[in-house]
Simulated assay, not measured.
Amino acid sequence: MKKVACAVFASVTAWAVFPTPAQAQETIRVGWTIPAEESKYWMMRRPTEFADLGKSYKIEWVQFQGTAPMVQAMAAGALDCSTQSVLSAAQGAIEANLQTYIVAQHVSEKPGSFSVYWAVKDDSPIKTVADIKGKSVGTNVFGSGILGPMAMLLKRNGIDMEKDIKLVETGFPGSEDAIRSGRVDVGVLNQPFAARAEAKGGLRKLFSLSDQQQNIVHIMEVCRKDFVDKKPELAKLYIRDITSGMKKALANRAETLKVVSEVTKAPVEVLDTYLLKPNDFARDENARPNFEGVQAMLDIYAQTGMLSRKLDVSTMRHPTMVAPIQ
C-alpha cells in the first residue's frame, strides 16, 4: 500500500503557500478534493484572510480525485491531514492501521437539507423502492460510503443489494445522463448535479439516504495521530483556520460563490442555484464534528459488511484538538 500511496501522491497537483524569509518553516501537507470543502477553499484562495496562514505556518495543498487515495497517501506518510468520508477513514484504520483524529467536519445531512437521492425518469414504471428488484441501479463508485445506508433501506423493503439488483458505477457527474439514456433504471444524484438535473426536469426522486438515516456525515477533516501528537501547536493553528474558514464561508455567501468558482471552475450562476441554500448539504458554522453521527455510520458499515469489524469513534477523537478552535 505504501508504494501505491507514493505513486498516487507523486501524480497529483500540489498547491503551496510559499513562505517569505520572515515566515516559520513549519509546513502541513493537506489533501483536498472537490466538492464541498468551502473552508479549505477559502484558505487556499484567500490566505490573507487568516492571521497565521503563510505567517506562523504554511500549507502544501495536494489535490486528489477522491478520499480513498488520500487514505493511501496518509498511510504512506505523504500527507498530514486530508478530507475523508467516514467509510474511507474507517477502512484506513482497519486495513492500513492508519490512526487518525477527526478534527473538523465539512458537510453532512440534517432534516431539511439536501440528501443524496436516487431518481428515475418521470415515465418509469418504478414507483416504490420494492419495484427496483431486478433493475439496474447506479452508484458513484463501487464501495462508496453512500451504499451502506442504501443497503439498509433496500433490506427494509425486501431487497438484497448483493443479489436482487445490478449495481452500475456511473460516477456522480455521469449519473443524470445514465438515467436519461436508460443505462440505469435508477440513478444517484448529488449536488451540484442534482440541481442541474432538476432544472432540466423529466426525472423523479424515488428515495434518499434520509429515508433510512438522519444526520449522515459525508466528509470530515482528519489528521494523522502522530502528526497531532508531535506538533500540537501546529495542528491547533490549522484547526483554528478550518474553523475560521467555515465561518467565513457561511457569513459571506457572495464571496464564497467566487471562491468555489475559482477552485472548481464552475460558473457562479450554476453554483448559485444550490450552494449554501436549503437544497444544499448542511454545514455546522463551527465545523464541529458530529461524532454520534459518525458512530451511527460506522455501525451501519459493520452491519452491512462494508467494514470487517466494528469501530469506536472515541478512538478517533482527541480531547482538545477538534473544531471549533477560536
Rank of each mutant, 00 (worst) to 15 (best):
P267N: 05
V268H: 04
V268N: 05
V268T: 12
V268A: 07
V268L: 05
E269G: 03
E269P: 02
E269D: 15
V270I: 10
V270K: 11
V270W: 07
L271D: 12
L271C: 10
D272Y: 01
D272Q: 14
D272H: 01
D272F: 00
T273K: 14
T273L: 04
T273D: 06
Y274C: 00
Y274E: 00
L275C: 04
L275T: 05
L275M: 12
L276S: 02
L276T: 01
L276R: 00
K277L: 10
K277T: 06
K277H: 07
P278D: 09
N279K: 05
N279V: 07
N279F: 03
N279H: 08
D280K: 00
D280A: 02
D280P: 02
F281H: 12
A282Y: 15
E285I: 09
E285Y: 07
E285D: 14
E285C: 06
E285P: 15
N286H: 10
A287S: 11
A287Y: 06
A287D: 04
R288P: 00
R288Y: 04
R288V: 05
R288I: 03
R288F: 00
P289R: 09
P289W: 04
P289S: 09
P289D: 07
N290G: 06
N290V: 08
F291Y: 15
E292H: 08
E292C: 04
E292K: 14
E292Q: 14
G293I: 03
G293T: 01
G293A: 03
G293D: 01
G293L: 01
V294A: 12
V294F: 09
Q295F: 05
Q295L: 09
Q295C: 11
Q295V: 08
A296G: 15
A296Y: 04
M297Q: 15
M297A: 13
M297C: 07
M297F: 05
M297L: 15
L298R: 11
I300F: 12
I300G: 11
Y301R: 06
A302I: 05
A302P: 02
A302F: 12
A302S: 13
A302N: 11
A302D: 11
T304I: 12
T304F: 13
T304Y: 13
G305N: 12
G305L: 13
G305Q: 12
G305K: 11
M306Q: 15
L307Q: 03
L307T: 06
L307K: 01
L307D: 03
L307R: 01
L307H: 04
S308R: 03
S308G: 04
S308V: 07
S308I: 02
R309V: 08
R309N: 08
R309D: 10
R309E: 14
K310D: 02
L311F: 00
L311P: 01
L311E: 01
L311M: 01
D312H: 03
D312S: 06
V313R: 10
S314H: 08
T315G: 03
T315V: 06
T315E: 15
T315Y: 01
T315W: 03
M316R: 08
M316S: 13
R317F: 05
R317E: 12
H318D: 14
H318A: 06
H318I: 06
P319A: 10
P319L: 06
P319E: 13
T320S: 15
